[in-house]
Design a binder for these strands. Structure first.
Lengths: 232, 232
DNA sequence: CGCAATATTGAGCTCGGTCAAGGGGCGTGG
DNA sequence: CCACGCCCCTTGACCGAGCTCAATATTGCG
């Protein structure tokens, strides 16, 4: 289980206070832990390694330092729905109840910072600002889930892929280019499509000059306007 | 706007303390407002009346007293995704941020109880138990949304309808029978299907003896076991 | 009892899934 | 630095679940 893994692989323990580079102002963890003096531990997972399973006790809350994580649910026959991708700076694994409602795994080699859920609960019990922040983070996840229900229930394949590209562009574009950490299958499982359909949609956008490739996962959006139009 | 409507139709204002009949123990509103002495107002909407629009300022938090409400998002061309149905006892319209992320409308004649969001925020600022409860309610909505993403992204039409029937059976069955407040189109918009597909699935379940009708919206589940199996 | 709204059923079509066969890029090892 | 090999990705051909369009059939409400 997680505890064992922690024992064998833990790298670095520190008092939270330094903020992850690149997220100096709006750091979610820092906002909570900074003035409470919680202890955070850094930890690494290899590509495809499970961080926690569905319905597993929610012992820790995580923040991606580097890499990328997916949160997902499985049906008994293996069909998978990814609910969210977590990128550097994102907090994940935060639960109000006792257990994780989705599983989480690293989609590439990933380093996270983590704090005990119990210590956050304790801080929230004495500091109203912390309590407010935990609520806001859960509300933010809910907002994303609500948008994603609309996508999954009502958008066409092309609209889904356009929405995905605009989301990733917003979240991880550097100098107008994005380096996707996830494979076509992961994108399909996020969008409720097959990997082939995702690939066909991307090829079509490429043919129309709306995006450019430099490697299958290195994408430049050349016409956000037209992409937004395709997004419905 | 809402304020106008409130002025013309408000029925009854009271100090919250009495609990809605049928929800004496786990009443969500009561748990928050009971010991804080907040003022709640009762209010009624007719079938198909909008309660609030998407992105409208979130001035009030609501609880269904009687009737039923749907929360939904629209695409520009009219495609609709219902994110949740709210039944008697349910709280809806609770936001951590300033605006409603989904619109809400009464799907049948409905009476709600409502309190000002600002007064809840104020109570949460002084009472940690209230803050905790608000967080828990948002987390509960998130849990539902995560389950629903799996349904919308990965389940077949028959699996979706089976899931829907089991959910409604759990939430509103009385003496083994459920009286659905919503039409086939609403069910379709909730499940990411057309109304025809919903109707066909229900007919098929009827033909297999898994459910019985007494009127299109009066349904008896005759074999929950088999339904659960169809739910994947 | 009558009628307008809602639900059912049918026929044909389409979008995205399935199955299958290459192609290409990246990391590894020589 | 280059070549090899393994994924990952792309593309093609066909299929079918669910959508669309259309014609009844119910039903519940006045």
């Amino acid at each position: 289980m997680l505890t064992q893994t922690l024992n064998t692989q833990a790298i670095n323990t520190q008092i939270v206070g330094k903020i992850a580079p690149g997220h100096p102002v709006t750091d979610q963890f820092g906002a909570i832990t900074g003035h409470v003096g919680l202890v955070a531990t850094e930890f690494s997972y290899r590509k495809d390694e499970e961080i926690y399973g569905e319905d597993e006790p929610a012992e820790y809350v995580y923040q991606v330092v580097s890499g990328a994580v997916s949160s997902y649910k499985l049906l008994s026959d293996g069909r998978r729905q990814i609910g969210a991708f977590h990128l550097p700076g994102d907090v994940f694994g935060l639960e109000s109840g006792p257990a994780h409602r989705l599983a989480a795994e690293a989609i590439i080699d990933t380093t996270v910072r983590l704090v005990k859920r119990a210590s956050l609960e304790k801080a929230a019990g004495t500091d109203v600002q912390v309590a407010r922040k935990l609520w806001a983070m859960t509300a933010s996840e809910l907002r994303h889930a609500e948008d994603h229900m609309l996508l999954l229930g009502r958008k066409t394949a092309m609209e889904r892929v356009a929405t995905f590209l605009l989301e990733m562009d917003r979240r991880l574009a550097v100098a107008g280019m994005m380096a996707l950490p996830m494979c076509r299958r992961d994108i399909g499982d996020y969008l409720g499509l097959t990997l082939e359909t995702v690939s066909r949609a991307l090829s079509q956008l490429h043919a129309q000059g709306i995006l450019g490739f430099s490697g299958a996962r290195q994408i430049v959006l050349r016409n956000r306007q037209r992409l937004q139009h395709l997004d419905a």
